[in-house]
Amino acid sequence: MFDFLTRFPPALVIPPGRYGAAGAGVIATRIEGLEIASLAAAPDRIEELRGRCRADFGLDLPAGPRRAAGEDVEFIGVGPGRWLALGGEGLEERLRSRLSPAAAICDQSDGLILFDLTGPRLRDTLAKGLAIDIDPSVFRPGDAATTAVALIGVTFWLLDEKPTFRFAVPRSYAPAFSRFLVASAAEFGCVVS
């Protein structure tokens, strides 16, 4: 059934197109134009960092695996005292000028690729590779998780109840991730845009 995968070089992300069954059970869209940075609180300065984020970005840094969005910046909790930040152009400098030295800031824009995934069969598709519960009763909009999908380390979060999941995938693993996704969604119909 997945013979079509052999048409694509394994080192490249599956290109835009329609794959598998007719229909659009899963829709995958690569997100470009967002900058990404990692944020790690300096030892013993986490309260100072929280205060600065409140004052300068108008948001509370999530204390757990959750998303907090402010004006032109959002933070995703990935570990104790550690976050991913996403925003428009100049993100790293914006973070550095306001949060350093309360946090170590490192640009990740070249290291992570973002995919927005949606569609009526998305949860069925992800269930083939995820070992955590993403049922709407327990994984709510704003929730995030750092885990493995098909043994590929990812961070993802739920943007809305549609549902739209946004995945941050290490660049060198993005081809493998896209192959997992397209192969797993093929029975439901997969649209890559």
Binding site: G64, P65, G79, P80, A131, I132, A145, T146, T147, A148
Partner: peptide, 11 residues
Amino acid sequence: PYCGWRDAQEF
């Protein structure tokens, strides 16, 4: 304590 219940394979 941070992530919640996870399969032992993640550790």
